[in-house]
Computed example of a mutant assay.
Amino acid sequence: MSAQIEPFFDPSTHTISYVVYDRPGGHAAIIDPVLDYDAKAGRTGTASAGRIRDFVAAQGLSVDWILETHAHADHLSAAAWLRDTLGGRIAIGAEIPAVQRIFKGIFHLEEGFRVDGSQFDTLLHDDERFMIGTLEARALFVPGHTPADLAYQIGDAVFVGDTLFMPDVGSARCDFPGGDAATLYRSVQRLLSLPDDTRLFMCHDYPPEGRAPRWETTVAEQRAHNIHLRDGIGEGDFVAMREARDATLEMPLLILPAVQVNIRAGRLPPPESNGTSYLKIPLNLL
């Protein structure tokens, strides 16, 4: 059975979230949902996630999974809110403890913060299979952007997370703690070895001027036209380009709040004695 796919583009963070389902009235997975965040006020909101909730309700879907491709640095995850609202299990790659260890130190998190991935319901390993109703899904380990990235293959569709972008944008950065450009190159080669007509769904789109946002491409299109990773570009050339480019990039606007929330599966830090949750800003560290 072919997967039915509904995208949700968030213009504030350039993120595309997805509902993937087997049939109306059937079973669904939600991929990379966004929790709204007003950086000026330090206030969260659920308008974006509410669009997903409303679609799920309108289609009569039962949510089996809320799938994270990685601990995002550019948006806060709405996974916890959607699980509380719709049910399902929050899943992420089994290497997430490596990311948690790095950022527990960077943010000097509370002693009780565990770095074993237990904040998530399920930790998925490379090539692990699981079901979304009648659809079979497969986890693909694709590190490089972070040490713990997964892509999700569901039928002829692959949700690539932060590995590839649209061909005219290229590839994801690799300069976050634990990232590595050579590792990303090898991960992308794994994706581009899939059949040419495999549909690839992006996690983000940062369109050049004059182009509307897009998020679906194919292996063949990426191999022919990706400005960073098309056929003929070797690992050494890619690594040199990626590292030089990353050295010019600013940190994402939301990296400090986002990572603190996302390594907790979308939960806010525990409230302090006054009942308020706080986020930390490490000075002169990143």
Rank of each mutant, 00 (worst) to 15 (best):
Gln153Asn: 11
Ala3Tyr: 15
Leu229Cys: 04
Leu254Phe: 01
Gln260Thr: 09
Leu135Asp: 10
Pro167Asp: 01
Gly26Tyr: 08
Asp36Ile: 14
Asp175Pro: 08
Gly275Asn: 13
Ala41Glu: 04
Gln59Cys: 03
Thr146Gly: 02
Pro24Asn: 02
Ile31Tyr: 02
Gly45Gln: 05
Leu150Ser: 03
Thr163Cys: 10
Arg264Glu: 14
Pro177Asn: 07
Asp121Asn: 04
Trp65Leu: 09
Thr163Phe: 07
Gly155Glu: 12
Met1Arg: 13
Arg43Ala: 08
Asp231Cys: 10
Asp196Ile: 01
Leu194Met: 06
Val160Tyr: 10
Arg223His: 04
Gly88Asn: 07
Thr276Lys: 12
Leu82Thr: 13
Val56Thr: 05
Pro97Gln: 03
Leu140Lys: 11
Leu191Ile: 13
Ile227Cys: 13
Pro24Thr: 02
Leu61Thr: 11
Arg242Cys: 15
Gln222Trp: 11
Asn226Glu: 08
Gly275Leu: 01
Ala247Cys: 14
Gly266Arg: 03
Tyr21Ala: 05
Asp38Asn: 13
Arg23Val: 15
Ala212Met: 11
Leu283Arg: 05
Ala220His: 15
Leu82Arg: 03
Leu256Arg: 10
Glu243His: 01
Pro167Gly: 11
Glu272Arg: 02
Ala58Cys: 00
Tyr185Met: 08
Phe201Asn: 12
Ser187Glu: 03
Leu184Val: 10
Asp196His: 09
Cys174Ser: 10
Gly60Met: 11
Thr134Lys: 13
Pro7Val: 09
Glu216Gly: 07
Asp121Thr: 11
His72Trp: 07
Phe176Arg: 09
Ile66Phe: 08
Gln222Thr: 04
Thr218Asp: 14
Thr46Val: 14
Ile106Met: 14
Leu135Pro: 05
Glu216Arg: 14
Gln4Gly: 02
Gly161Val: 01
Ile30Glu: 03
Leu140Trp: 12
Pro252Asp: 12
His228Ala: 15
Phe130Asn: 06
Asp22Gly: 03
Ile96Asn: 08
Trp65Pro: 01
Ile90Met: 14
His72Phe: 07
Thr15Ala: 12
Val19Ile: 12
Leu61Phe: 08
Trp215Arg: 08
Leu191Cys: 09
Ala137Asp: 04
Pro11Arg: 00
Glu6Ile: 15
Leu109Pro: 03
Leu164Asn: 12
His228Tyr: 13
Leu184Cys: 13
Ser187Cys: 03
Leu135Val: 04
Gly112Ile: 05
Arg129Tyr: 15
Arg53Met: 11
Gln260Asn: 14
Tyr18Ile: 02
Cys174Met: 09
Leu35His: 05
Pro269Ile: 03
Asp54Arg: 00
Ile233Lys: 02
Ala265Thr: 14
Trp65Phe: 06
Ala151Val: 05
Leu249Pro: 12
Thr146Leu: 06
Phe120Ser: 09
Arg199Trp: 14
Gln59Asn: 12
Phe107Arg: 07
Ser2Tyr: 00
